[in-house]
Every structure is written in structure tokens, then in C-alpha cells.
Design a protein around this nucleic acid. Sequence first.
DNA 1: CTTTCTCTAAAGTGCACTGTGGCCAGTGC
Length: 580
Amino acid sequence: MTITRDAIADILDEIALLLELKGENPFKTRAYRQGAETVRNYQGEVVAMAAANNLKDTKGIGKALQEKLHELATTGKLAFHQNLRAEFPPGLFDLFGIQGLGPKKVRSLYDQLGIDSIDALKAACTDGRAASLPGFGKKSIEKLLASIDLKEQFADFFRLGDVAPLAETLLDTLRQHPDTLRAAIAGSYRRSKEILHDLDFLVATSQPATITQFFTTLPEVHSVIACGDTKAAIRLENGLQCDLRAVSNEQFPFALQYFSGSKEHNVALRSRALKYGWSLNEYGLTPKDKTTAAAPSVNEEADIYRILELDRIPPELRENRGEIEAADKGEIPRLVELENLRGTFHNHTTESDGKSSLEEMADAARDLGLQYLGIADHSKAQFQARGLHPDRLLRQVESIRSLNQQWDDFQLFAGTEVDILKDGSLDFDDDVLEKLDYSVASIHGSFQLSEKEQTARIIRAMENPHVTMIGHLTGRLLLTRKGYDLKVEKILDCAAATGTIIELNCNPRRLDMDWRHWHRARDKGVITSINPDAHGTEQLQYLAFGIRIARKGWLRREDVLNCQTLDEVRSWLAKPKGQR
DNA sequence: CTTTCTCTAAAGTGCACTGTGGCCAGTGC
């Protein structure tokens, strides 16, 4: 009987949710949540320890949790949990994904109206039944419907960061097949779109039917949608659809170009090919009539662009947003690469809501080959995240200064993620901020302000000489929550004028600011910092997603603060904001 | 449910915001 620590932690979290639904003592539910976190972050073989009843000296695990963990670790399940679960219909859990619904409101919807699914909720909102419940007024209903709408709109979408590990594993598997000559993932994954509908695999082979057969019988496959001799489609356990095309080695570059899209980019490229007298499709570049000579041979995708007298266009730029014109003039920029990063800002530690200590974060950054790491724990307004008051912050600054003594090739920068309050003032006074190396100012509440108020609020923060950068500019959560209303244009102008950096938050749930704004921002002279917003050492890996989005936004290494060397960034931060 | 202070029982993250309902409750950070 093996159960993973993550599975155990998930069960404890679900118990907490169920207890909340039942209206249990909040401290009891908190104990289960805490228990889940303790299990997740436990240093050591927590499952084996639980099986051996060896957890009694662990802080946060008392007698009751110890017994339940023992049952989970030895039998793989927990009667207490299963009984609790049986009291509610499974669809009820989906309701918690709707913004504005917590345990109390879910309970009342279920008890009073029998609502146990998102569909049922939508119906009750539309026909007026929901409005009859206490606490559900006109605006609440509107908000619920908007949130349901967002969910439906993105029902078949997945976040880039959530599918990337799977995508790369599947690609590796395909590459290892003896009949595979070349393999790639095309489509929006290759273009680094922040959310994806499906994955498009492409394999060059002389045995296409063998490959489609192989693909549809992989262990990851949940169901087979289609399987022909050259084309197959499967669905994975998580619902993600994966298409595969098997083509000849000669066709591969054309197919790769074609299936990488975007459609708009391809339309523009095809019309350019026509001007040269060729017709371009997924199979090749063929003369459009007898007067045209045959096209030069193509071995790589880049050859297609070369033949059409274009710079090679990186897949990330293929959205028909000026890349063809730029390639025509030889003005495709050299885009930033992961290897260019020298450090990063905006990382949390156990001092607020991170799960790795200051020392662990520093070690992890050094292991990644970074020269510096900025620490930015939450400020006091983020109480639930154990936000720091000035005294604790200044003690952390001292720890950082003293840790820094031991390195001459690495440095921690002492910062904060300071809350931008409703009126645009900051959660720390200037005399606190000026003791730090830098600051990230972020919004964590009052999302509903009007566009004008919200814009003014951020501009006020940017005008503060101690605000180095703005964190997650729009506050969006991909597939879950739209960003707050902002005049991005005005904010970019102000960022350029005040020398305030706009962060590119590369937590895969955010990827904020959106890539569509970065090209313009860059042209206005705005600088970015690619920040993982890491709450644990492993999340420093998010930097790779940040690079993908930065590239999609046409950014070069010179547009990114954390591509600067330690010496450069040190002297940059030392200058007054206006002179940077 | 856990911890702690006290020894069996009490205390245990805070605050702003929003919308609604009539001065408070629920949610989210």
C-alpha cells in the first residue's frame, strides 16, 4: 500500500474544506490545513514516519492527526474522510472555484436550493431563485454569473506552466521511438501562449502508422479520440487533448511551420510566398504555375523564411503583430534567453508565506548559477501571509547583510513586497523603505476600483522614489480571475517617466503583465525584471516561463534588469530612481 | 484540532472591503 505525501496532504485539505462546509470550529479546519502543509513540507520520509507512528513530536501534528496519518499511510485511505465526503455530492466542490463563493454561501445554496453543480448555480442565478437567499443581492448574482462565464469560456484551456512538464515528457518518449527521425511540439505551445487548448505533436518518420499506433497506446493516454495512419488524437487523464501528425522527413519543416501558426502569421506568410510565385502549405513550397521555377530545397524550417527573404522568425513572435515586416527589414531583435539571466527579484521566504528559509533560497539560487537573489517578503497588510512589520523586516535586513559577508560572487538583496493600499499609499513609510536595497509594490486587494481610480492608485505608487518595481501589474489569475481595470498605456508612460520597473511575474498562474503589452512598453523605454514570485526553492524554475513570455513580448536582454551582472545591478540600484 | 498554561480548560492570524439589509456577515488576501 503506497500513498504519496501529496495525496495525503490533498486529503487533509479536502477534510478542511468539508469541515468548513459543515460549519465546524474554524480552528479545527485550520488544524487540518496546517497538517496538510506540514506533511507537504516535511523534511524526511513523512509517509514512512506516519506508518510507524513516529510523528508525535512534530509541531502541528497532535494525537488526532497522528492517528489519521497512520491510517492513511498504512491503508491508503481514511474512513473519517470517506464518511465526510459521502455527506456531499461531488459537484459541490466545483462551486469553490467560483469567485465570491465561500463555504457559507455554498452551504446555503446547497441547503436551500439543492444546488450541487456549476450548471445548477447558473440556472438558479438566471431564474431568480438564488436572489431569494439572504446575502445574494443583485450585484452578487452579477458577479457569480461573470465568474461562471469566465470558467465556461476557458473550460477547455490549460495553463502553459501546467502542461509543460507533461508536454516535454511526451516529446521525449516520441523522440526515443526507433522510427522517429525528428519530433517537435508545434502549435501554441511552441509559440509560448500563456494558455493552451491542446498540444500538437509532429513526428518525421518513414513509418507513420507505427508512430500513431505507438502514440495512442502510451500509458499517459486516458482515451483515444482518433487514430489513423498519419494522424491521431488522444485525451490525457487531466482532459488535455494531444494531436499527433506523422509526416515524411521532407515534409517535416513545412509541417512544423504550418502547425506552429499562428493562423494569422501563416496567412501573411503564404501571401508573401505567392508574390515569389510559390504556393506554401504544410507539404511544401510549390510553383504556382508553369512560369515559376521550383523553390530551392528545404531541410529546416528556417530555410522557408530564408527563401522568402526574411530573417528567421522565432516561433514566439508569430502572431502577425509586425514580425513579418520586421523580418523583411532584417530587424528581428535578438531575444532574451534563459542563459542571460544573472539573478532575480521578488522571492519569498519562511519569514512570510514562503516555505524555504532565507539560506535555502540563497543556496538554490547559487545552484542555478545566479549571482544575486532579491528577497521580497510580504508587508504587514498581508496578515494572512504573515506579512512583516517594520521591526521584523529590519531584522531580516540585518540577517541578509550578515549572510552576504560569506560570499564574494553572490549577493542577497534586501527588499520587500510592499502592499499598495487602496489610495495608492504604501504599507511602509519612506523611512523604512529607504533602508532596503529595493522594493516591489503590489496590489492585493480592492480589485473593484474603477479603471480611473485603479490607474491613479498605481501611478501614485510609482511616483514614490523608493518603489523600484510594480509587482504583477494587473493581478490576473489565468483561467480564474481577470485582471483589474487599468489604463495600461498611462501606466507604461508613467513607468518610463519615473524609471519604475514593471515586473514580468512568471508564476505560471499569473504571467503578468500580459505579453501583448511588452513590445510597446519596451519602445517607450520601460525596463522589466523577470521575477518568479517564488514561495519555495523549486519555484525559481518559473524563470523559464518568464523568459518564454518575455521573448513573446519582443524583449531583448537589455530590456531586462536581471540580465545585468551583479556589479551592474548593484550600481544601478545605488543610483537615485530618476537617474537610472 | 493543537498548544499551552496549568494541570482541565481556555485560547488560538487580522483587516479591509463588499454588498446587503438595516448595522453585519462573508469573502479574500
